[in-house]
Every structure is written in structure tokens, then in C-alpha cells.
Design a protein around this nucleic acid. Structure first.
Length: 931
RNA sequence: GGGCGGGUAGCUCAGUGGCAGAGCGCUGGCUUUACAAGCCGGAUGUCGCAGGUUCGAUACCUGUCCCGCCCACCA
């Protein structure tokens, strides 16, 4: 493989790298899971939330791909039989609406076409576009087992739906009932409670009008309403029993002004709040949930005034045929004409809207199929409380509980054509038969229920319907329950909760062991992405690059877009091709506790730079390593090699902990910091001259070369494996070129993953501590150079003094490194404090655990007296501030007695060190004055 | 009305009962043969506000003010 790879002398270009590897993985069967009982590997299963079959990839999908792929690849590399179950959802209303809109553009509608032709048309469309999203997932590097891909309307999954429905019916949980439901006149279907969204803060008005009291004697009762047209369905006026204003009217009737009927004034303490409005409430049992309940309490008539399309029906008398919106105006005018209007005031209300169409939802009395939820919800509640399923982050448990505890029966029937038709047959005489197939006795005179099931009904079965249920397949045995379910919190009720209930009900076991809930991706200013707002970013535009002109049709929308993404506005004409890895790495870097994830394109750019760093570091390493596998992983003896192995081990530990606890962001930052800050900034810089065997007298350490090569090869190959779940493409590309043990398989995706256990032996706190000290010395000297603007090429004498002989000895050993990284004149000198100090020597104090270190740099002639004095004063100020803080702490009553001894000890040490540092600095100041 | 989350650097966000962090931005220097998509430095914070617990609070508790989200039938 290595021979055929292009050379690395080109700058990293994801477009040249990424497409090559996907086919390679598929060819090598990387994604395949096996349901063979003989396979003894531990199983890891993640059901992918099935995207809408006709949809195209959005930021949320990209996030799903990123997080789930990271978890799946991580397990796969650790030797799990990992199944990421892919598939698509038929998305009932959403799909039907889209196709209806397409038809409308052609001047057609589904009613003219007829059900069969319409459904055929959707199948055709699905056939044309249904794979688009699957291809897009591949571009992101997703690694599900495609051979097991399912669609919710596949024959086997449809069979599972029917089976579930029939069983629920047999068990008395699925029933048909006539009650008030949510109706969307635009979609012309019923909705579940969850599909109704409330638009808060809508501006409406509270309209008041009078009903004449019937039976002579005049008198009236004034009611208030936000929906005046519903008065056509009024069948009572309710007042509070204790309201003295209306006592005289109890038991009387009022006359309807437009239709020929009268209805009672009833007393109801539940419905009526005497302080609100006029204290008298019009009651419309057929079009309001409160009024419906009131009607039941008082035995009121329920008069439906609406047709299914939202126009008024014959019960509306003179207003019949009008649209509900026009009817509202007309009713108000008619009331005014009759002298019954009593004014209106602005009123802020909450409007129920259809999740899909956005239309205002009307409560309507209707006969529908319902699923009893309470007993199922109780089991689902228990499963989380007993820990059978863990919700991560745990803060969602309360939300889950609240939903389950207050759950209402689920209206599952929809008056749509696209979906699973309900397996029930009706006879004209009212008989209903529910069966798996059309029963023989249902001959002529019987018709199948025309309704289809809520799309979420089939989704709720996903963890087991995809594995062959109701048959007892090997896959079902192997892959149920799933291990982790990852999804956005927005479908916790729609999907997760219902899977919990259905899984427990049909399988007698939770559908997954953990639920991992992620935040929602929003624009950079925190607003939800929406086409209307013009702030939607297509993830593939980030992967492949796109001009803003392409993404926004006109100048106005471009301006809106740039406002939504300030950091993108600075990118010029558009997004460069960041590549899938950079997008993924960025999406993985947000902690899941973040409910809203503000997508900052600049952050992707930063991570794209990180990929470049990996690319170039690997180029350098390959140059330093030459050929041949040196990756043995034996414990190194040399200081720097021990240090980088220790750092690598720490990174592995953090990454493992992060991935294990669904803190992928922690794995991301551990990898980033290790690779860039430890490996590139320090280790490679130090090791470069050793491996190049520079012959200028420094770093000629032939005995260290083999071990250093081995270590460099080890951490390089290891860190590529460490990062592979997070950025699969670049790691594969580079891994295929780096020296690696012969035991490795064809792809990095086969692992193994560098585990903390394997690396544990390399952790070395003492080495880490010494390296910290060395880094501080070097930084201090560099800072002096930088502050005095010493030319890069100029060499300066450096002298470091410490009262700790061990420190002096250590630094002497690493004199070459200091010389290299600081650029000293000759070898730096390390000595005990108290020696003479030349005029023109500038000093910086590092006050560490082992007492202060004086870093002296002689700058005679390169620095003025004033500059040096100013610098020393700044440093003195810092030290004084720290010293004051620590003295305050030590002086605070009780600290010495109550704080843990090691904290007290450390503080005392710090105080001593700082105090000494101050003395040294003052000495330095005296000398500087002599400049 | 109930519930949840957030308020930390100019921006996007980590974080911890013991000296406030990252990326981006800003800024000084540097084209040093892995990388200028880079390297070496630097500046920047009443950790929303007020109390409390504590030897010690940005962190824990209470209250409060903003912001966002979810649930709920107030005409």
C-alpha cells in the first residue's frame, strides 16, 4: 500500500486525501458487524437515528455522524464486534408535504391523483433521492454496516409495525375512541400532543361580547374570547358559583344571536376564574380542551362547527363555508351590527401550531386510534431509575421523568396516505376487525382503515424491528439491546421515550444501555438554524468549500448570513474546503452539556490548521525516521523519550476517559494538546538534532539514536491511532506511511486503540515534573530575549542559579537543550546562587517548587538601563502580588490548622520561594542601576 | 404557572473548594530546510449581582437580575 501513495511534499489537501479511503474501508470490510453466535467478541451496538429518507444532510446529521462514528470506531479498534445500524425513516407528514408541494408546482394535487398513484409517486421520488443522504454520510466518513441498512417501510419493518399494532390491540392497549384531538387543517390530519408546538407571545386580542338572557326581562351576560368564531359552537356560558355578580343568572338560559338555539348558564369552579375577563366564560366543548372537559361535567352538547379543511360547516349557520380566519372577522362584525360587541383589548396569547406545516391547530372532536401509555410509561420510568438505562448527561433524567409521569394516551392515527396503513377493517354497520392480514370474513362491505400510523410509531420499534423482530433472528439475539443511543435532546420524547416503552413492552428489556443526548447546533449568535432566517449551513459546504454567493441567493440574505456568522464574514468570499476531518473534529469538540452549540466557522478553520500540523509533523518524523519498523514500544531510558511516552500515556488516559463517559470533547482536547503542545512544540524540536546527528559538536549522541527513533515512531503511530475515531481520513492516510509493527492489520480502523492500560507503565510524574522545570527555564530565557528584542541570530550568555543541587545537576545534564532552544552563547552555566553578577545582566526569577531559579542573561550593550529597570519592576510587581496573596492566605485565621497539611506546606514553600525571589530581584535591580 | 440550562478574556466556550484557562481575535519579534495554515514572546478578566457555608468560593447553598429552551387547557 505504501508504495502507491502519493508523496507528502504537497501541502495537506483534504480533497486529495479523503475520497480515497472510504472505498478502501468498504473493500476491507471495516464496517461489518457479525451476528454469528460463534463470534465471541464483546458486542457494541449503536442504532443510528434514521434520517428522513427524502432529506438532505444538515448540521444535526453531521453531528450524529461525528459522535456516533467516534464511539463506534473507538470500540471497533478495541476489538468489539461493533454494529452501527443505519437506515432511513419514511417521515410521514414531512415527506407527504414535500411531495404535495412538488405536485402543486405542477398544478396537480393528490386528491385528483388518487391514493394509489400518489403513494406510487412518493415511492418513485424516494427511489430517486432516497440515497442522497446516505452518500452524504459517506462523505463524512461514517462507518455503519451499510449491508444492514433498513428503511421503515421495508416489507420486514412494515411487518413489525403491523405485528406491534395487532398485539397492542389484542392486549387492550390500542383502542379506537372519539374525543377532542389536535387537528391541523393544513395537513388535514390529526396530530399527537407532541406535534403541536406552542408559539408564545403571539399578539391577539381579547374580544368581549354579550349574550342576551333568554326568557324576557332583558339582561345580558358579557363573555370574553380570543377566538370569536368559536361562539358558533357555544353550548353554555359558565360563571363561578361564588361570583356575586352572576348569582341572579344561575340556571337561566341565553339566546344565540345567529343560530336558532338557546343554552344554559352553568356554574363551574374549575373552568372559571372570576378575576379574569368578565368572569363569564363562553363554553365551546367541541373546540377547546377546557370546554370539552366542562361539557362532560355538565352534559353539554358538543357542536362541531369546522370542516376538516378549517372552513366552517353547516352548524355555523350564516357563516357556513367561510374560512376560519374570515369567519372570525365576520362574526365580530355581525356581533357589532347586532349591538352585542362590547369592545376588545390587545392580548398576548399562546398559539398552537403544527410542527410541520406551521398552521394553527384546531381542537376537534374526532374518532382516532389511541395507545394507552400509562403502564408502559411506568416501566420506562422504572428502567431509568433502576439504572437499566442510563441517561447522559444525567440532567435530562428530570425531563424524562416529567414526561413519563404526565403522559397522555398517544393518538397514533394520521389522515395521511404515506405511511403504514392501519391493519383494521371496518364494516358499514360499525364492526371493526384488527388483524395481521385482511381477514377472510372481511369480504365485500368491508374496507381497510384508510388512516396511517404516526411516523414515530415505526421509529419506536427501530432497535428491534431492524434486527428482524418479530422473528427470533440471530441478529436480534446478538444486537438487542443496543449499547448506546446517541441523539439530539429535541427528540427525547418523540423517539427515545417511545423506544424505551416499546422496547420494554415487546422485548421485555430496555432497548439500549445508555442514552447520550447532545446539544443542538445553532448559528454563531445562538439562533436556531432555519431557512426563514437564512442561517442554515450545509455541512457539505464546509467539507467541500462553497462561496457565500452560492449559499445565499441575494444580497439581503447574504447580509443576514454574515450577521449570523460573524467569524465567517471575515473569511472573504466563502468557506474554503475544510474537509470532513476538520468539520468532525470541531463538532466533536463541544461538550454535550452545552444545550446550544454555536457553530463558529473560525473554530473549524483552527482545527483545519491542526490537521495541517499533523500532516507536517508526520512529514518531519518520516524524514527523521527513515525506513523500517522500529515500533517496539519498549520502555525508553533517555529523559526526553520517557517524558513524551509519559505525556502520551496521559493523553491516552484522558481520551479514554472522555470517550467512555461521552465526553468526546475531552478526547479531542487531549489529542490536540498532546500532539501540538507536547509532541510538536517540544519533543520534535529537541529530537530533531539528535536524529539528524548534527555534527557541530552538539547532540551527537549515537547511543540515543535507536531508542529515540523507536520512541518517535511509537508515539507518532500511536497518536494517529489515538485520533483515528475523531478524524478517520487523515489518520489513515498518514498511518499507511509511518513505520509500524508487522502485527498491524490493513487499516488503522482495525486498531488497536492505544488504551490507558497499555500505556500506564509509561506514566512518570517525576519526569513530568523535571520537564516542567526545564520548560520554565527555557521560557524565562526566551522571554528575556523577546522583551529586549534580541536578534534571533544573536547568541547570549545564559546562567541559571539554583540553591538546590539536584536542580543544578539536572540542568547541567540538559545544557544542550537549553542552548538549542534559547540560543545561548556557548554552553549555559548552571550554578549555586550567590555568585557575582555582571553589570548588564538581566534576570528573571522562576519560583518553582524547588525554590527560586534565577535565569540570568547577559545583554551588555543590547539593552538600556531604563528598559531593564522597567522590566525588573514589572517582574517585581508580579512577585509582590503573588507574595501578598499567599501571605494573606497563610495569615487568615484557621488556615494553618484547618487546611490539609500538604496545602499548607506548599503555601509555605511558595512564600519562601517568592520571598527569596524578591531578594534576588532586588539585587538584580541594583546591578541594573549601574548599567 | 412548573421545570431545565446558561451568564468566566473582544468573540465562541472549557474548568476547578487552594496562584483564573483554550481556540479565534489583538499585539511585538521572526521567512530558523516539517509547517507563515508556522515559530518565539506579550497584553486582556470586579468569573452576572447580593447574601450564606468555609481557614479559603469563580466553583457549594440561598436569594436576585438577565438570556435561552422545554412542559402546561387560563377564556
Amino acid at each position: 500500500m505504501t508504495e502507491t501513495l502519493p508523496t507528502l511534499d504537497q501541502p495537506y489537501d483534504p480533497a486529495q486525501v479523503e475520497p480515497r479511503w472510504y472505498a478502501f474501508w468498504e473493500k476491507n470490510g471495516v464496517f461489518a458487524a457479525t451476528d454469528s453466535a460463534a463470534d465471541a467478541r464483546p458486542v457494541y451496538v449503536v442504532p443510528m437515528p434514521p434520517p428522513n429518507v427524502t432529506g438532505s444532510l444538515h448540521m444535526g446529521h453531521a453531528q450524529r455522524c461525528t459522535l456516533e462514528d467516534a464511539l463506534v470506531r473507538w470500540h471497533r479498534m478495541r476489538g468489539f464486534n461493533a454494529l452501527w445500524q443505519p437506515g432511513t425513516d419514511h417521515a410521514g407528514i414531512a415527506t407527504q408535504l414535500v411531495v404535495e408541494r412538488m405536485l402543486a408546482k405542477e398544478g396537480k394535487n393528490r386528491r385528483d391523483m388518487g391514493r394509489e398513484a400518489f403513494v406510487e409517486r412518493i415511492w418513485q421520488w424516494r427511489h430517486d433521492t432516497g440515497d442522497r443522504i446516505l452518500l452524504q454520510q459517506r462523505i463524512l466518513g461514517a462507518s455503519p454496516d451499510w449491508t444492514r441498512s433498513k428503511f421503515t417501510m421495508d416489507p420486514d419493518l412494515s411487518r413489525a409495525v403491523t405485528e406491534a399494532f395487532v398485539r397492542l390491540h389484542e392486549q387492550g392497549l390500542m383502542y379506537r375512541a372519539t374525543r377532542l384531538i389536535n387537528w391541523c387543517p393544513e395537513c388535514m390530519t390529526s396530530l399527537s400532543d407532541l406535534e403541536v408546538e406552542s408559539e408564545e407571545g403571539a399578539n391577539g386580542e381579547l374580544f368581549e361580547f354579550a349574550y342576551e338572557v333568554d326568557g324576557g326581562g332583558g339582561g345580558e351576560i358579557v363573555v370574553a374570547t380570543t377566538r370569536p368564531e368559536t361562539m358558533l359552537g357555544d353550548t353554555a356560558v359558565a360563571v363561578h358559583p361564588d361570583d356575586p355578580r352572576y348569582t341572579a343568572l344561575h340556571g337561566k338560559r341565553v339566546k344565540h344571536p345567529f343560530v336558532n338555539r338557546t343554552f344554559p348558564i352553568v356554574t363551574d369552579a374549575i373552568l372559571v376564574d372570576p378575576r379574569f375577563g368578565t368572569g363569564a366564560v363562553k363554553v365551546t366543548p367541541a373546540h377547546d380542551f377546557n370546554d370539552f372537559a366542562t361539557g362532560k361535567r355538565h352534559g353539554l352538547e358538543e357542536i362541531n362547527i369546522l370542516n376538516l379543511d378549517g372552513t366552517l360547516n353547516a352548524n355555523a349557520g350564516p357563516f357556513a363555508g367561510m374560512d376560519r380566519k374570515r369567519a372570525r372577522t365576520a362574526v365580530k362584525k355581525a356581533l357589532a351590527d347586532k349591538g352585542l360587541a362590547r369592545g376588545a383589548k390587545p392580548h398576548v396569547l399562546t398559539l398552537p401550531r403544527c410542527q410541520r406545516s406551521g398552521g394553527v391547530v384546531e381542537p376537534m372532536i374526532s374518532t382516532q386510534w389511541f395507545l394507552k401509555m400509562q403502564s408502559m410509561a411506568e416501566k420506562a420510568l422504572e428502567a431509568v431509575h433502576s439504572g437499566k438505562t442510563e441517561i447522559v448527561p444525567a440532567e435530562w433524567v428530570k425531563t424524562y421523568d416529567h414526561f413519563m409521569e404526565n403522559i397522555q394516551d398517544w393518538c397514533v392515527s394520521r389522515q395521511l396516505w404515506w405511511g403504514h396503513q392501519i391493519p383494521a377493517w371496518h364494516h358499514a354497520d360499525g364492526r371493526v376487525v384488527v388483524a395481521r392480514e385482511r381477514p377472510a370474513e372481511c369480504g365485500p362491505g368491508w374496507t381497510q382503515d384508510p388512516d396511517v400510523l404516526d411516523t414515530w410509531f415505526s421509529s419506536a420499534l427501530w432497535p428491534f424491528s431492524t434486527q428482524g423482530w418479530p422473528d427470533e433472528t440471530a441478529a436480534l439475539k446478538k444486537f438487542y439491546p443496543a449499547s448506546d443511543l446517541e441523539t439530539g435532546y429535541d427528540i427525547l420524547f418523540f423517539w427515545v421515550a417511545r423506544m424505551m416503552m416499546m422496547g420494554l413492552h415487546f422485548m421485555g428489556e430496555v432497548p439500549f444501555r445508555r442514552v447520550l443526548l447532545s446539544g443542538l447546533i445553532v448559528d454563531e449568535t445562538g439562533d436556531k438554524m432555519s431557512k426563514v432566517k437564512g442561517n442554515v449551513i450545509d455541512p457539505l459546504d464546509l467539507v467541500n468549500g462553497a462561496t457565500f454567493a452560492k449559499m445565499t441567493p441575494d444580497a439581503e440574505s447574504l447580509a443576514r448570513f454574515k450577521k449570523a456568522y460573524p467569524s465567517a464574514a471575515a473569511m472573504g468570499a466563502g468557506f474554503p474546503a475544510f474537509g470532513a476531518d476538520a468539520v468532525r473534529f470541531t463538532l466533536a469538540s463541544y461538550p454535550p452539556s452545552n444545550k446550544r452549540i454555536a457553530l463558529a466557522p473560525k473554530r473549524i478553520e483552527g482545527n483545519r490548521h491542526f490537521l495541517n500540523k499533523i500532516w507536517n509533523a508526520t512529514r518531519l518524523a518520516l524524514e527523521l525516521l527513515g525506513h523500517g519498523p522500529w515500533v517496539e514500544g519498549q520502555a525508553p531510558k533517555t529523559f526526553y523519550n520517557r517524558w513524551i511516552r509519559s505525556r502520551f500515556a496521559a493523553a491516552c488516559e484522558t481520551a479514554h476517559g472522555g470517550l467512555d463517559s461521552f465526553r468526546v470533547d475531552e478526547a479531542v482536547s487531549a489529542a490536540y494538546r498532546f500532539f501540538w503542545n507536547d509532541l510538536c512544540d517540544w519533543y520534535l524540536e529537541i529530537v530533531k538534532p539528535i536524529l539528524r546527528q548534527q555534527t557541530d559538536g552538539t547532540f551527537l549522541r549515537p547511543e540515543q539514536v535507536p531508542e529515540t527513533r523507536e520512541t518517535l515512531a511509537y508515539v507518532l503511530e500511536g497518536s494517529l491511532r489515538l485520533m483515528h475515531p475523531l478524524m478517520p481520513f487523515i489518520t489513515e492516510e498518514l498511518w499507511q506511511r509511518v513505520p509500524r509493527p508487522a502485527s498491524r492489520k490493513a487499516s488503522i480502523a482495525f486498531g488497536p486503540y492505544p488504551t490507558p492500560d497499555a500505556e500506564k507503565g509509561a506514566r512518570d510524574a517525576e519526569v513530568d515534573g523535571w520537564m516542567d522545570l526545564l520548560q520554565e527555564v527555557i521560557s524565562a530565557a526566551r522571554t528575556i530575549r523577546s522583551e529586549h528584542a534580541i536578534d534571533r541570530k544573536a547568541e547570549v550568555p545564559v546562567r541559571v542559579r539554583s540553591g538546590d543541587p539536584a536542580v543544578v545537576a539536572f540542568l547541567r545534564e540538559h545544557a544542550e537543550t537549553v542552548a538549542l532552544l534559547v540560543k545561548t552563547q556557548g554552553p549555559p552555566v548552571f550554578e549555586a546562587p550567590g555568585g557575582p553578577r555582571d553589570a548588564g545582566t538581566t534576570v528573571s526569577i522562576v519560583s518553582g517548587k524547588r525554590g527560586p531559579l534565577e535565569v540570568l542573561v547577559t545583554l551588555k550593550g543590547l539593552v538600556t538601563k531604563d528598559e531593564e529597570l522597567a522590566r525588573i519592576d514589572r517582574e517585581r510587581k508580579r512577585i509582590e502580588k503573588d507574595l501578598a496573596a499567599i501571605e494573606k492566605k497563610l495569615a487568615s485565621p484557621g488556615f494553618v490548622d484547618r487546611a490539609p497539611p500538604e496545602v499548607v506546606e506548599e503555601s509555605k514553600q511558595q512564600r519562601a520561594s517568592l520571598a527569596e525571589a524578591k531578594v534576588r530581584l532586588d539585587e538584580g535591580r541594583k546591578l541594573a542601576e549601574e548599567l
